[in-house]
Write a protein that binds this DNA or RNA. Structure first.
Lengths: 141, 141
DNA sequence: TGCATATATGTAGATATGTTCAGATGTGCA
DNA sequence: TGCACATCTGAACATATCTACATATATGCA
């Protein structure tokens, strides 16, 4: 199979093998703006401390900042910083009660996302998929 | 409600409101090692270019490096770097055909994860949930 | 009003990450 | 074998991110 030269959006020559597939994929591909949003969301989940905070909320349902800090064993100020980012992105929501502020996961998408990901790492079958023989994959633990 | 002082694992005094809930959550909380793995996975998804690569593979099924580069419009060497990270984490898998190497999403977990996340950002109802009135949430677009 | 508490915010230095260029590897073909 | 091609790898620079400390805001209560 020989590669052919095609002119990309930016005017640069680009070598492609299957121009038709590239073209059709490009048309269906998520937009740059949407990809940026997706990446932003994933990146927020991509920090150990934020991850632990989120899984703590997944287990507890609702926690105030100081209990959250005690649960994940980190300084309250760090928890607060983390929560701000998560709040801004609508991943968690908050409710004030007196001088405490209680945080919870904002919606079911997030809960599913956290669950699904944990399952992925544990090598379980995907949600909604029929049970099937577990893949042999290099275990981590 | 008055906060009480509790001694954490590290020996530091920590203020908590609901000691019982903190304790029970701590016991059910994912381990540090697992949180680290989860965060590592999310972080890999948290880069615009890698995100676009993954969604391109989601649409196309399978693409060689140069077609992938043409699809997402980035230099082949950057795509290659990105793919290495994704490959190491078992997010994508590869197959050699002559001097080309074709990449695909490694498993259904990843596909579900990508789909679910896209749905989340589009404010749809979560997978598997009954249709219900859309939440009023601040739109992005 | 004044003080203690619970949380939020600003900022700076250390660290991690992404991009790019140069060059290495591996495959097919004459 | 030697060359062209497709992809990979290493390293350096610019940029983004996290952490920690100091300080600010907001609430409850005396």
């Amino acid at each position: 199979m020989q590669t052919e030269s095609v002119v990309g959006l930016d005017g640069c020559a680009v070598r492609v093998v299957d121009a038709a597939r590239v073209d059709s994929t490009r048309r269906r591909l998520v937009s740059r703006a949407e990809s940026a949003d997706l990446a932003r969301l994933f990146r927020l989940l991509g920090d150990v401390n934020r991850t632990r905070i989120l899984y703590a909320l997944l287990e507890a349902g609702e926690l105030c900042v100081c209990d959250l800090a005690a649960t994940v064993d980190m300084p309250e100020t760090s928890v607060s910083h983390a929560l701000r980012l998560l709040r801004t992105a609508n991943i968690v929501s908050s409710r004030r009660d007196g001088r405490m502020i209680f945080y919870r996961l904002d919606d079911d998408h997030i809960r599913l996302l956290l669950d699904l990901t944990r399952q992925h790492l544990r090598h379980d079958a995907p949600v909604g998929a029929k049970a099937r023989p577990a893949r042999t994959r290099r275990a981590r633990d």
